[in-house]
Design a protein around this nucleic acid. Sequence first.
DNA 1: CGATTAACGCGAAGTTGCTCGCGTTAATCT
DNA 2: AGATTAACGCGAGCAACTTCGCGTTAATCG
Lengths: 231, 231
Amino acid sequence: MTTAHQAPGETRPGGRTARTRRAVLTAVSEELADGGFATLSMERVAQRSGVHLATLYRRWRSVDKLVCELLTDMSSGVPLPDTGTLPGDLRALAHGIGRFYGADRTRGLIEAVVAVAARDPQAATALRDFFDERLVLAGALVRRGIARGELPADTDPEAVMAALGAPFYYRILIARRPVEPGLAESTATAVWAAARAGAYTTGTCRPAGTPEPTGPDDDGPDDDGAPERGD
Amino acid sequence: MTTAHQAPGETRPGGRTARTRRAVLTAVSEELADGGFATLSMERVAQRSGVHLATLYRRWRSVDKLVCELLTDMSSGVPLPDTGTLPGDLRALAHGIGRFYGADRTRGLIEAVVAVAARDPQAATALRDFFDERLVLAGALVRRGIARGELPADTDPEAVMAALGAPFYYRILIARRPVEPGLAESTATAVWAAARAGAYTTGTCRPAGTPEPTGPDDDGPDDDGAPERGD
DNA sequence: CGATTAACGCGAAGTTGCTCGCGTTAATCT
DNA sequence: AGATTAACGCGAGCAACTTCGCGTTAATCG
């Protein structure tokens, strides 16, 4: 024996294994597009994919893991634009996000991923890491804009990109209404105006590309004793 | 016979029934604060509350319904401020939201509610209606600001409030990091700047409460002809 | 090309979660 | 206060989900 037992699909990844994997992930995606996470079950995935139920349980232990793998499989759905100006990039990216999340299967995937993350801690960290990475990647747009002098030097690129994405997730998960082009337009305008106004500056200038510190970040301007309503 | 059978708790709502209800909802809230939605189950709620499992299934048919009722039960967690100026109101409200969602139990509730809405269509509409209502209520701040001439007259109040809430849900559900005061400050600043810039004027973004045309509008400007699905 | 064994299909067994029927407690009405 | 019956506690029973053992197919290597 070489090593301890591995999960199915690791030692013999080609041919039939790859084919079943693709069939299953496609089935999950279609299932999400059809009835959403509500009707997603191992049973239905087995039927739609033609893969036997026991095989599903063997390779992926639950629907949660299935959704997780689909997430990483659909990683780069939104291309990063480069129009030459930051407001142009923000607008293009916002519309890209809008179009991507306008699709039923993407919408269903987002719902499913968040639902799954709420139950499975392992899925939760996977989700967090996934979006962290995309945030850093997309932050390049903002870093270019800063380099061009379009924004203050101490602007937090990841904060800007988070602000650009947030309204779409709000629309999908909370407001639960269709994602329309108007939302993309509004969001791009809003984020650009807010960034220019310095809403996303940190105060401490961090080198571009540096992952944010993991420590107890008491960042931001400390508004000690801020005179809000004391509930 | 009077009418058809009603759900338990309807015909005799006082005394023991009310006490059971409170014990159960408290148990659910505590359970969410402790281990989150991941470890929430009928079994555990029964144990913690001291209410029998069969009773839980009789009055609430599932954990999903339990979470739904807890949501409406916690409705008024964030007070609406009135500082005299719109930026002051936005800042106060943002910090109120930040403090409310900073608590573990609230955070767990949000996670749970979204997860539940992904599975149960009935819960989904309940969730949508709930947040719609809060959005309209909170929109009063913006309407006052418009009346004071602080914002353009065609500003969409609900869109502004959605923009104020979105970053918190993003932080909780997607970024999965703690909600800090800095986020509230940043969000308030951003929304105020964006609103002044006219990002939320009607025509750019549709109000949440209005009946929307079902036809998909024309897709926004394709300033980047990149393929949708890059893989 | 033939041997080896990982991955799969299949049905049955095992486990978990949910429901049902009945007796008991206490809310509501007279 | 006493009668009525809704709501609850309890354990058994049912159903859906998950796993197991074994025979078959086909990926990988000599």
